[in-house]
Amino acid sequence: MDLLFDLLREAIAPTTAAFALAAIGLNFHFGLTGLLNMGQAGFMLLGMYGYAITVREGGPIWLGIIVAIACAAVFGVILGWPTLKLRGDYLAIVTIAAAEMIRYLGRSQNLNDLTGASTGIRGNDFKGSFEELSPFPDSMVTIGPFTFHGTRSTSWWLVLVGWTLVGLMVLLYWRLSKSPWGRVLKGIREDEDAVRSLGKNVYSYKMQALVIGGVIGALAGIVWSLGASVQPDSMGRPTTFWVWTLLLLGGAATVFGPVLGSILFWCSLVLVKGLASAFIPTTVLSSQQLEPFSLALVGVTLMCLVIFRPQGVLGDKKELAFND
């Protein structure tokens, strides 16, 4: 059954890992702290620009990662500074607007030399140094039922790095959410004023959460771009909305929710497309229509999730991430 292999392949693909990372970041924002960050794609895009441009200009990998992290952190601080004192939906509007601004700026002709405008940055310009580090052979490698290239683009090397990062971030989330620091964030999610009355500096904690989640988003962006290329239009609003969908699917405020959500999300997409192309004749649903059809289903899924099972697959009904 080819479809089954496709599903399993999708489950371990670097894209899945990248989205799991982005969702872990969003989980710090929304799951722990209740912040409505609608611009996670902006953090991801900044991350990939930061990394790709640094490496393209001859910088080492570690510097690229630091630049990516710094970009996301500064972006978070700038966004949070005016909005974290305001009502929650202001943050939603500002983050979505700011993420779109990053994208518009990135694809602007004015910055062609830096960002490559709307064509973005080609993979060959920045992936080299990462791929050289690969311990895998420079050819197609088959492990079990899966065949990936050893080093290039969507490779075993990137699968290894991507999922190791996911593992580390899951650990990070677990450690922090079970610490007194995480307790303060949960308190803020429940009621800011109560936490203030207990002597905690709510603004500072919200800022910390926004920055740490955004930085993880930037790492997600790097992993994503190493599997493809830097393309501003692939980090538009739909990307943010997908991250939200898969976080809610897996279960916000849970440790493994983002990971499970990402796997379920991408596998279901493959499954829907596979089944639809197998069973629905092309006269009814052409191959060109398959993509929007399945993405329309994503939208419906998001609606149904929020309405009928806001705690997601792994969540505890009593600890919903939504306020009443």
């Binding site: 939906d89 909305f241 929007p292 329309a296 939208g299 998001l302 609606m303 806001p310 939504f322 306020n323």
Partner: peptide, 24 residues
Amino acid sequence: RVGVVQQMIVSIGLSLALLNFLQW
């Protein structure tokens, strides 16, 4: 009595669904 934040995310889902439906 679904909260407004939840409703907002429902509207995001609806927007995704409609957008892709129109493209389809």
